[in-house]
Simulated assay, not measured.
Amino acid sequence: MTSTSSPVTTIVFDLGGVLIDWNPRYLYQKLIPDAAALDHFLSTITTPDWNEEQDAGRSLAEGTALLVAQHPEHRELIEHFYGRWPEMLGGPIPEAVEVLTELRASGRYRLYALTNWSAETFPVALAQFEFLHWFEGIVVSGTEKSRKPFPDFYQTLFTRYGIEPGQALFIDDNARNIHAARAAGMQTVHFQSGAQLRQELRERGLLAAPSV
């Protein structure tokens, strides 16, 4: 945890895993009933590293074609990754969205999002989740052709919206991205749950304690 000596004027949210429950298992558990086979497919075929290349700007068509060429025996399952991508959306993470709602209602902070997300699939989420329209700005990796944890991606956020890093608090569920945000000068909260986020923000004086 970084120093909180600077006053926080801006709060920046990650999206997937913080406000939105996204998980390929929601789709693939329908397609691969055997648990061991499911784990093997997600860890060795449609890996997080492969998906992150699409998040960083590679087209879904190109990413799919490359993987099919490597694993032609899994063509149909691979093509379902983006062909049935909306089925991976489990919905909002309620307690975290409640925290966002309270921060917005307070009027005390500028609210932004910094997300690793394909430019081709992000519009699906934007249409589905009203709270995504509450942010003053969202920096999407697929649009920028960069992603967390690369320093230039954070700098895009700072430059575009005139954000002073030391006065910004970044919330992400990925420790790698948290470390990069700290290196960029931001204050951070490593997200574990909505309840944990609420508690940390209260301890920092950023969110009001419940009335008694």
Results as ranks from 00 to 15, higher is better:
T159I: 09
T159Q: 14
T159V: 12
R160A: 04
R160D: 08
R160N: 07
G162P: 09
G162T: 04
G162L: 01
I163C: 05
I163L: 01
E164Y: 14
E164I: 12
E164A: 15
P165K: 00
P165C: 00
Q167K: 15
Q167R: 15
Q167H: 15
A168F: 07
A168M: 08
L169R: 11
L169H: 04
L169K: 11
L169I: 05
F170S: 08
F170W: 06
F170H: 11
I171P: 07
D172L: 05
D172N: 07
D172K: 11
D173R: 13
D173M: 12
N174W: 11
N174H: 14
N174G: 08
A175P: 12
A175S: 10
A175Y: 01
A175K: 12
A175I: 09
R176D: 13
N177G: 02
N177K: 11
N177C: 12
I178R: 11
I178E: 09
H179F: 13
H179P: 00
H179I: 10
A180L: 04
A181W: 02
R182L: 09
R182S: 10
A183L: 14
A183H: 15
A184K: 06
A184Y: 01
G185T: 07
G185P: 11
M186N: 13
M186V: 02
M186Q: 15
Q187Y: 03
T188P: 10
T188M: 09
T188S: 12
V189A: 00
V189I: 13
V189N: 02
V189K: 07
H190S: 09
H190K: 08
F191T: 06
F191D: 08
F191M: 09
F191P: 00
Q192S: 11
G194P: 00
G194L: 12
